[in-house]
Design a protein around this nucleic acid. Structure first.
Lengths: 333, 333
DNA sequence: CTGAAAGCGCTAACAC
DNA sequence: GTGTTAGCGCTTTCAG
C-alpha cells in the first residue's frame, strides 16, 4: 500500500518540503494561500507525517512507559488505566511493561526502550538498584513505592493509613491483631508494617509471630493466613498489607471454618474493585488509585516538556472504606 | 548525557561505519581481527544502536500492539501477559491499548501506531467495522472475538462450550435455566447465547425473558441478575456469559438471600483467577487463556516475518472446571 | 514568505 | 574484506 511522504505533498502543492513542514507544524510564516494549497494536498493524499522520521530528527519519541511488577494484581490495571488516559490526553504513546519485579526484566526493557528514544518512565518497583536509577538518562517518577530519596515519587500515606487501619480494628474491640505483610524490599510494604507496629508494639499481647509475610501474592497470603490462624487461634483482627492478599486471607479463614466478621475482622489496603466482589466484601484503606496514576503521568510529562523543573514528590491520602469483613465485637458477643 | 553513534564506534575502531554495521548485524564478511577491534570499541563506548534510525530505514519497527476492550476485566491482563511474554521472546516490543470498545479510540490508536511503523496488531474488539479492517495495512489477528470471516483469528469453541455448560446444569438437575448474556455486537457473546439456546430452546419451560443482557460488565450483570431472579424466582440454574459477570451474579443472588449452590447453581465462562476468589468459588468453562494469547502472538509474528504465509484461524477448546457455585440438586432436596 | 541543503543514525548497494 | 555513498522521511538553519 502506498504511503505518501512529505515529498509527494510538496510536489502536489507545488511547494518545497520545507513549506509543507512549516504548515504541518505551524512554524514560521506561510502565505495563507499556499497554506491552503498544502492543506488541500495533504487531504487529497490522506497524508500523515511519519513519526519515526520525526523522532529520529528530534531525538524524542513522545512515548512513556509504565513498569509494573504484577499485571495480574488488579491494582495495576487500574493504575495503568489512569496513566494511559493522561498519557493519551497529552499526545504521548503509552507502553506498559510487566516486570515481575525482576531486575533483569527491568534492565532489558529499559535498554530496549532507550534505543527507541523513550522520553520518560514511571516505575513501580522494589528491585531497581540505585545504580541503575542514576544511569537512566530520562525523567523517572516512582509510583506507589519509593526507590530512592533523590527521586520524584507519587505515593500514599502508607504508614499513617496503616495506623488508622489497625486503630480501627482496635476501636472495633479486637484484642489480638495480626498482620500479613508485603515483600520487605517494597518500601510501601515496610511502611505499612511500621504503621501496624506503631499501634501494636507496646501492647502486652503483641508477639513477633503475629506478622506473617504474604509477598503481595494471593496464594502466598492464603498460606500465610492459614499458618497464622492455625498457630494463633486467638487472633480476632487482621490487617493485611494489600487487597489482593486480603482476599486470600478471607479464603484461608473460610477454609479453616473461621467466620468473618463474627470471629475475625479483616481490613486490607488499596481499595481495588476486587474487594467488592468477595464474600464478605473487604474493608480497606482505599487509595485514590486513578488519581495517583494520573498525577504521576502528569508530573512526568511536565518534567519532560519543561526540562528545567525538577518534579516534586507528592503524597496522597488513603481513606477508610467500611465493608463487610469487619464488625464491632459487641454486636455479637 | 553522551550517546555514542555508529560513527564514534567506527572512528575508535578505525574502520568505516559500514563495517561496524556489518559486525552489528552479522552480515557480510568481516575479517576476524577487525571484528574484534569493532567489538572492543562497542564495549568501550557502551554503544547501543539507535532503533529509531533502524526503523526509519527498514520501515518496520519490531513493535506489535494488543487492543483490548476493558483492561479492568482480569481476563485481559491474563491475556496481555501471554502476548507480552511471547512478544518479548521474539525481540518485539509490545504495546497494550485499552479501547473501551470504542471505535473512535481504536481508530485514534491505529493512526498513531501506523505513524510509528507498527508491524502488526492483535485485536479484541466488537466494534471495528469491516471497512477499517481492510484499511489496516499491517497483519492483524483477531483474538477472543471474530471480526470478519476473512481475518485470521484465535478463539475458543464458544458455542460448543456453552452447550456443555448448560447441559452440565441440566445434568445437575436444574429445571429452569437462565442466561446472562454479553454484548450483542461481540461475536463470542452471540456464540455463547446460541450455545445456551441450542440446549434450552425446545424445553417447554423456556421463555425469552430467561435471557438478560449483562454487557460483560460486573455491575451491569449484578443488576441483570437481580431483575432476572426477582421476576423469575423459579430459576435454579444460571449460565453467565463470562466470569466477571458470574461474580456479579453471585453477589446479586447473595443480596436477594438466594443460596448458591443450594437454591441456584451458577456456571460462567472464561476461567479467570478471579473465579477462585469469590465465595462460593465459581464453576466455569475455562479457556486456556495463556495459550490462546501466546498463540495469537506467535501467529502474528510468523505472519510478519514471513510475508507470504497467510495466517490460519485457530480454535481452542474450553474445559469444565467444577467449583462451589454448582451442585447436584438431589444432594440437598 | 519560500526554497535549497544539511543531517538525525543507520543500512545496503556498489565499488575496489 | 572493506570503504564510499545514497537515502529512509522529516525538520531546520541559512539564503534570498
Amino acid at each position: 500500500m502506498f504511503m505518501p511522504t512529505i515529498k509527494d505533498v510538496a510536489r502536489l502543492a507545488e511547494v518545497s518540503t520545507a513549506t509543507v513542514s512549516r504548515v504541518l507544524n505551524g512554524n514560521g510564516y506561510v502565505h495563507s494561500e499556499t497554506k491552503e494549497r498544502v492543506a488541500e494536498a495533504i487531504k487529497q493524499l490522506n497524508y500523515r507525517p511519519n513519526d519515526v522520521a520525526r523522532i529520529l530528527f528530534k531525538g524524542r519519541s513522545k512515548m512513556i512507559a509504565l513498569f509494573v511488577p504484577d499485571i495480574m494484581n488488579p491494582y495495576f490495571p487500574e493504575l495503568a488505566r489512569a496513566v494511559e488516559d493522561m498519557t493519551n490526553q497529552h499526545g504521548f504513546t503509552f507502553v506498559l511493561c510487566n516486570t515481575d519485579d525482576d531486575l533483569n526484566k527491568e534492565i532489558t526493557y529499559l535498554e530496549a526502550l532507550k534505543q527507541k528514544s523513550l522520553d520518560g518512565i514511571i516505575v513501580v518497583s522494589s528491585t531497581m538498584t540505585e545504580e541503575y536509577i542514576q544511569n537512566i538518562d530520562v525523567p523517572v517518577i516512582a509510583l506507589d513505592r519509593i526507590l530512592h530519596r533523590s527521586m520524584a515519587s507519587v505515593t500514599v500515606n502508607n504508614r499513617e493509613g496503616s495506623r488508622q487501619a489497625v486503630q480501627y480494628l482496635k476501636d472495633l474491640g479486637c484484642q489480638r491483631i495480626a498482620h500479613i505483610s508485603g515483600p520487605e524490599q517494597a518500601s510501601n510494604a515496610n511502611q505499612r508494617l511500621e504503621g501496624y507496629l506503631d499501634v501494636v508494639k507496646e501492647e502486652s499481647w503483641f508477639k513477633k509471630s503475629y506478622i506473617e509475610p504474604g509477598e503481595y501474592h494471593f496464594e502466598e497470603a492464603k498460606k500465610a493466613t492459614e499458618r497464622l490462624l492455625t498457630r494463633h487461634p486467638e487472633i480476632d483482627g487482621l490487617f493485611v498489607a494489600n487487597d489482593l492478599m486480603g482476599v486470600g486471607a478471607i479464603k484461608a479463614a473460610e477454609a479453616l471454618g473461621i467466620k468473618i466478621p463474627d470471629q475475625l475482622s479483616v481490613i486490607a489496603f488499596d481499595g481495588i474493585t476486587l474487594g467488592e466482589t468477595t464474600t464478605p466484601t473487604l474493608t480497606t484503606m482505599a487509595q485514590p488509585i486513578y488519581k495517583i496514576g494520573a498525577r504521576a503521568a502528569e508530573l512526568l510529562i511536565q518534567q519532560i516538556e519543561n526540562q528545567y523543573h525538577e518534579a516534586q514528590s507528592e503524597e496522597f491520602t488513603v481513606e477508610l472504606v467500611e465493608r463487610d469483613s469487619t464488625r464491632r465485637k459487641e454486636d455479637h458477643p
